[in-house]
Amino acid sequence: MAATPWDSELARELKERFGDRIIETSTYLGQNFIVTKPDAAIPVLEYLKLEADFDYLVDVTAVDWPKRPERFDLVYIVYSFARNERVRIKTYLPEGFKPESSVGVHLTANWLEREVYDMFGIQFAGHPDLRRILMPDEWQGHPLRKDYSILRQDQTWVRENLEIESGQ
């Protein structure tokens, strides 16, 4: 089963308004998602919030595809209380691309984007407080990247802060 086009008023509205900045509107397993160009993600989020009642940002996350030219999927999940409907917004980012932060649209994004930065090294432009959140501040490397082995550690950090030699 593959994703099928998402036929709805909202999808048409979005396409009309954003034109070719929206690459795809599809449905898979009954879940709707939109693929946008990287610079359109925030305007789409804003449009969905202000014009279509998608007022709750559920999650922001990323997926690493190292073999692809656009290495990362950046995924926003939004929900509308009024419509009882969920939509995913996806963009594909090349390594080093700095997407605009969505904190200006949804305050929830603050910690969520910090986590994405911490785990994937995606830097959000205009984020008010872009620090690591789960890993120590001085840690080197971004653990959820596919080229970061599960056994890898920041040996220097471990030696300096825990005063042990890592056995791994």
């Binding site: 785990m119 789960l134 959820l144 599960i150």
Partner: peptide, 15 residues
């Protein structure tokens, strides 16, 4: 300040 219990559950899942 978070992360004291960070075990990398999402990384474990991939392995």
């Amino acid at each position: 300040v978070l992360g004291y219990l960070h075990r990398g559950v999402e990384k474990i899942a991939e392995n």
